[in-house]
Amino acid sequence: MTFRERPWLQSGISRKDAVAAIRSDYDSNYFVSGKGDMVAYADDCLFADPFAGFNGVERFKNNVSNLGGLMEDINLEVSGWEERETELETKWRFSALLSLPWRPRLAASGGTTHVFDEETGLVVKHIESWNVEPSAVVKSLLKPSAKKPSNSWEKFFKAVHDGHPGASWMAAASPILRWYAFPVVALSAVSKGFTGHGLPGTFLGTIEGFAYVLGFAAAITQFYQLSQKSD
């Protein structure tokens, strides 16, 4: 049975038990995976990081577990652990692969300040600071972890990350033709065969019209790429 399943502990907890519980949470990668028990926290604890701030342990666990469900190969290392009169301050670094088609690696280092309530001993503030700009973290999500891209997704996002629009289009042409333009044009042809009309709407203002335009551009790009390979 966990502390949170024993509600009377919410009225107070010793510093020793609170610190031990927090240590156990770190061992469970709690702020990356959302799998910690987090029994040392007040139910309405404030959670803040460079991206957002809100109250509530259950909300925190739900938010983190949604992202944690996409993570593989999680590595969390605690490099600092300083206990003060009303706070526990940690330093950490972590990395993980995200289960997205281009498999980016998310990595960051920073620290967390756990602020204890003087009466209950529970953590009432959980403040994260990162040693990297949030924009840099977002940009890193565009970069595939593979050194040599092996599929269209990896090629596309590597080109976007590197700021090469031409290469981005080259990588996107084949998926656009295969998964968007061709199916929509095929449906349009079937619709015309049975009803005498294409898909509803005006030509350039619909999915159908956009598919024709993108499909034509993607087909030209594919033809160019094939001709380059044959030279």
Rank of each mutant, 00 (worst) to 15 (best):
P149W: 04
W169D: 00
P175F: 14
S140V: 03
L142T: 06
D162G: 04
W153N: 15
A146H: 00
S150Q: 06
P134Y: 01
P175N: 07
K155C: 05
S174P: 02
H161F: 06
F157I: 09
A136N: 12
V160S: 00
S168I: 13
W169A: 03
A146D: 01
A173H: 10
G166P: 02
K148D: 03
K148L: 14
M170V: 14
G163C: 02
V138N: 05
M170C: 14
A173E: 09
S145M: 11
A159L: 07
P165W: 04
S140L: 05
P144S: 04
G166E: 11
W130C: 01
A172M: 11
W130N: 07
D162Y: 13
S174D: 08
A136G: 09
V132D: 03
M170I: 15
A171D: 02
P175V: 08
W169H: 03
F157P: 15
F157N: 15
D162W: 08
W153R: 11
K139F: 02
A167N: 11
A171N: 01
F156Q: 12
K155E: 11
P175I: 07
H164D: 09
P175W: 09
S150D: 00
A159N: 04
I176L: 04
K143E: 12
V138P: 10
V137R: 10
S135L: 07
I176H: 02
M170Q: 14
V160I: 01
F157E: 10
P134A: 09
K155H: 09
L141K: 03
P175K: 05
S150W: 00
P134K: 07
V137E: 05
H164V: 15
I176N: 08
K148Q: 11
V137S: 12
N131G: 08
E133N: 14
K148M: 12
F156D: 04
S152V: 07
V137T: 11
